[in-house]
Amino acid sequence: MAPKASEISTPIREQRHTGYKPVPPVRFRPGPATIAFVSFVCLLIGLLFLALQIRTIFSDQLKQEYSGLVLEGIERAESARTVVRVRQQQADNSNAESGRAEQSADYRQARINLAARLASLAALVNASPSAAPRIPQSALSPDANLDDTDTLLAVQSVYWRAQRNHDSTDARTRITRVASTLIVLSALVFGALITALGMYAKRTRQLAGESHKFEYAALHDAMTGLPNRRKLFATLAETAAAVSRNPARRKMAVFYIDLDGFKQINDSLGHRVGDEFLIAVSRRFRQTVRVVDVVARFGGDEFVVLIREFSTNAELDAIAQRLIDCVRQTDEQMGVGFVRASIGIASFPDPVRDYHQLVAVADETMYQVKRNGKNGYAFATRTT
């Protein structure tokens, strides 16, 4: 009986209800250590193959030298056989008894020399580890049949020349293999090195990126993205050093901003609305000053703005008014209706002569504004 459609679709519906998702296949991504290990194993195998091939090449060279010695022995025996042939013809052509006897003696000596050559050749041939045709003991006698000697020398010459040619060809083939293996191993080592360097560079970039993220997180406020106290004071010291080199022409200032009434947002509207307000006003602060200036969240609802260079207090007046407007506009946009800003301003080197005291003096000045009615700004008059 065929299953019903509802029965077939039940597992699918169960998967949808249970939220089951197929597990994606795990992809193997080799690291530098794995690549180095595989390359090392391949290198060892290649070196072992090279060692075997080189050993065989040396063996082939020894075989070629042995074949050359045998062929030299064959040539010497063939030379001795030629002398025997000449002496035999001379003895046959001699007419005088004395001449014939002398030629017979020369012929006999030539046969003895031929037998000695054949004995030397037999010592080489019969000692060969290869399956070479052996030279029988009967062929070493001075009285051996010369036709059999000619046949023996011809057979030995053909065999050992073929053996030498075979060994030479085999050696050339193995040398080619060695050269090819060296090229492959060089490419393998070079490729592994390039791959390892590439992966190392990638890891280095990743670590540098992570390090940059950690450094950024250590120097910036997590919620607003503004620089924190640590970043502020580092920039303050850097700017003060530049101002100190030319105090007659350069001045810097710090604005300490406190949001009046902000606590009521958290109490009445909740911390989520308070966080949204801080993020929005931070963005406005950042947009209302120059790129080179620094807007930092000092803590809670307090902000510090570092003006890295200005000429007159009129410029600071305009900046302070824009910062107050930023708070008012954010308050109106979010429909809060009671958040404003009190700002204290301190400048270096006049009237504050120690830049380490800039933030503290600006903070004191901000509290003076609060005591005088809030929602305004004032310049510090204290000199340190």
Score class of each variant (00 low, 15 high):
residue 363 D to K: 06
residue 355 Y to M: 07
residue 341 A to D: 05
residue 300 G to C: 03
residue 269 L to D: 10
residue 249 R to C: 06
residue 339 V to C: 03
residue 302 E to M: 14
residue 286 R to Y: 02
residue 284 R to K: 09
residue 327 V to D: 01
residue 277 F to W: 10
residue 365 T to C: 03
residue 298 F to S: 04
residue 249 R to N: 15
residue 263 K to M: 11
residue 352 V to Q: 07
residue 317 D to G: 06
residue 337 G to D: 10
residue 259 L to F: 03
residue 251 K to H: 14
residue 347 S to R: 14
residue 277 F to N: 07
residue 324 I to W: 05
residue 330 T to E: 13
residue 331 D to S: 07
residue 321 Q to F: 05
residue 282 S to P: 03
residue 296 A to Q: 07
residue 330 T to D: 02
residue 358 L to W: 12
residue 313 N to P: 04
residue 353 R to V: 15
residue 354 D to K: 08
residue 333 Q to D: 14
residue 306 L to N: 11
residue 329 Q to D: 13
residue 303 F to M: 00
residue 275 D to G: 10
residue 324 I to C: 11
residue 298 F to M: 02
residue 270 G to Y: 13
residue 281 V to R: 01
residue 315 E to F: 09
residue 366 M to E: 08
residue 346 A to H: 06
residue 331 D to T: 09
residue 360 A to D: 11
residue 361 V to N: 06
residue 295 V to T: 11
residue 278 L to N: 04
residue 357 Q to L: 14
residue 351 P to I: 12
residue 352 V to L: 10
residue 330 T to K: 01
residue 330 T to F: 02
residue 323 L to S: 13
residue 271 H to M: 14
residue 355 Y to L: 13
residue 271 H to C: 13
residue 251 K to L: 09
residue 348 F to D: 08
residue 249 R to P: 05
residue 292 V to E: 15
residue 280 A to W: 00
residue 316 L to M: 14
residue 346 A to D: 04
residue 336 V to G: 03
residue 304 V to L: 01
residue 289 V to A: 04
residue 292 V to Q: 12
residue 323 L to C: 05
residue 335 G to C: 12
residue 327 V to G: 06
residue 252 M to Y: 05
residue 360 A to M: 04
residue 263 K to Q: 11
residue 275 D to K: 12
residue 354 D to I: 10
residue 306 L to Q: 12
residue 269 L to P: 00
residue 277 F to D: 05
residue 349 P to A: 01
residue 333 Q to K: 03
residue 291 V to R: 13
residue 267 D to P: 08
residue 334 M to C: 07
residue 279 I to L: 08
residue 333 Q to T: 06
residue 322 R to M: 03
residue 247 P to W: 12
residue 339 V to L: 10
residue 330 T to Y: 02
residue 297 R to Y: 12
residue 322 R to Q: 12
residue 365 T to H: 01
